[in-house]
């Protein structure tokens, strides 16, 4: 085995920097803005629809999420969402439609390993960490808030 020394590594990193392309940050920023903005603007249209029908704001928010999840799941199932994601980057991944994509895509993919150990077990392979860290952080944050600020 040949493991390079620190000095060799540093020299190598310099060579690499010369030839390694950077991600097109500006282009990615623009496409992320357009994609993310469009998705959330569409969601706002859905939300306005519910609000106009007298649904309470809190429920309207939850309904809107469900509608967007449906849209994201459907676009994933028919094989469109990954194309949006390739163009829009985090603009497609950050909205809840991307969360749906992250759940539905492994469900489709790993179905071939069976419904229980494939589909069922791997469904949250990408989205699971979001739920885990979301729930843990929310618990700690809520607890601290109640202890520090008190109820109210």
């Amino acid at each position: 085995m040949t493991k390079a020394s620190k000095k060799e590594q540093q020299h190598f990193e310099r060579l690499l920097r010369k030839h390694r392309p950077n991600p097109p940050v500006l282009r990615n920023t623009v496409t992320a803005f357009i994609t993310g903005g469009t998705i959330t603007a569409l969601a706002q249209l859905v939300m306005n629809f519910f609000l106009a029908r007298g649904v309470k704001p809190l429920e309207a928010t939850a309904f809107t999420s469900a509608v967007m999840i449906f849209a994201g799941s459907f676009l994933t199932a028919i094989g469109v969402y990954d194309l949006i994601g390739r163009w829009g980057g985090m603009g497609a991944a950050l909205p809840i439609t991307g969360f749906a994509n992250a759940v539905v895509s492994p469900a489709l993919e790993y179905k071939r390993e069976g419904y229980v150990l494939g589909l069922g077990a791997k469904m949250f392979v990408v989205a699971g960490p979001v739920i885990v860290f979301g729930v843990v952080t929310a618990f700690v944050v809520s607890l601290l808030r109640l202890l520090l600020w008190g109820v109210g």
Partner: peptide, 14 residues
């Protein structure tokens, strides 16, 4: 919604 949603996505992309 467009501005705020797009803006958050830009931060994530960066």
């Amino acid at each position: 919604a467009f501005i705020v949603g797009g803006g958050l996505c830009v931060l994530a992309q960066l």
